[in-house]
Design a protein around this nucleic acid. Structure first.
Lengths: 152, 152
DNA sequence: GTAGATCGGTTTTATAATGCAACTATTATC
DNA sequence: GATAATAGTTGCATTATAAAACCGATCTAC
């Protein structure tokens, strides 16, 4: 292996996204960050990830601008990892994954965590639409490739 | 290594989803399938993936119900790989990834492929909402963990 | 204030996943 | 019927990952 293939030059935005957060652990760490976790040990316990891998992932997530490491809000001497705006904007990705998993990966009636609006308790979901509000399914969509340098 | 950690028993739907499609190549294959590719060689050329890895991924995607392999529509003797309903329902995940990538991983003005409504050419986007249509940002959401067996 | 526990990692070592190239069997093309 | 393309499989080299041991700095209990 000559190192994992990089998709960073690809003109498909999905491909570039996967290049950045498509590895095994990154999105799980982000999920925990959405859940309010900030410290090394918290991620470690929550995910059961090996510590060396966790350290490496946190480092690259910070490098790539998805997390920042800030020097502990509460006087403590440790670091805390917080989502940046870029990281927080992964929210729809998380919701999409969650929605799909709920539908296909749980037995009917099997318990699972739920995502709700904090204030009202209403369930949260997500839909694909055109900018004028029309709901879209996959078959009604079309990918326009970039004109010259075909790549996508 | 004792095999890559399985998250299939996790009560967080996002985690289970990542367990199924969270590896390096699966979502890229699915993206190409959305793009209309069906044959081994097409995926191979499009992704530049090693052939043994591609074969393995196609096999597990079929096993897991995301693709089906059908015996060539046009009399030909080869297999074709098509998205199942389960696979097609990954569409929002793809759109979410695409939208995030467009925003953060391209220079202003840098060309990239675009997703539009086939009939009208209108751009497609996606939003997180409550079931009564209220737009939601990450900070307004809350994950309700499953009651007894804390896991998520 | 010091002994022990906890936190946040790094290092080492073993194994699994990946990539590459070569090979094969089957199917299209001429 | 020869040639090439397709759709893989096999074997080997390399990389990524995991588990466990280790380590210094900090926090806690006494």
């Amino acid at each position: 292996m000559v190192g994992r293939k990089s998709l960073s030059g690809n003109y498909c935005p999905s491909a570039r996204s996967l290049d950045v957060i498509g590895d095994w652990w990154s999105l799980l760490i982000v999920r925990d960050a959405f859940d309010g976790l900030t410290r090394f040990g918290e991620f470690h316990r929550s995910l059961g990830i090996a510590k060396n891998i966790l350290a490496q992932r946190l480092r690259t997530l910070v490098e790539r601008g998805i997390l920042t490491s800030v020097p502990a809000l509460n006087g403590g001497a440790h670091q805390e990892y917080h989502l940046t705006d870029m990281g927080r904007d992964l929210f729809p990705v998380m919701v999409a994954l969650r929605q799909w998993g709920e539908r296909y990966l749980f037995e009917p009636g099997e318990p699972h965590s739920k995502l709700v609006e904090r204030d009202t308790g209403r369930p949260i979901r997500l839909d694909v639409r055109t900018d004028d509000g029309n709901a879209i399914t996959a078959d009604k969509a079309l990918i326009l490739k970039v004109p010259v340098t075909d790549e996508d």
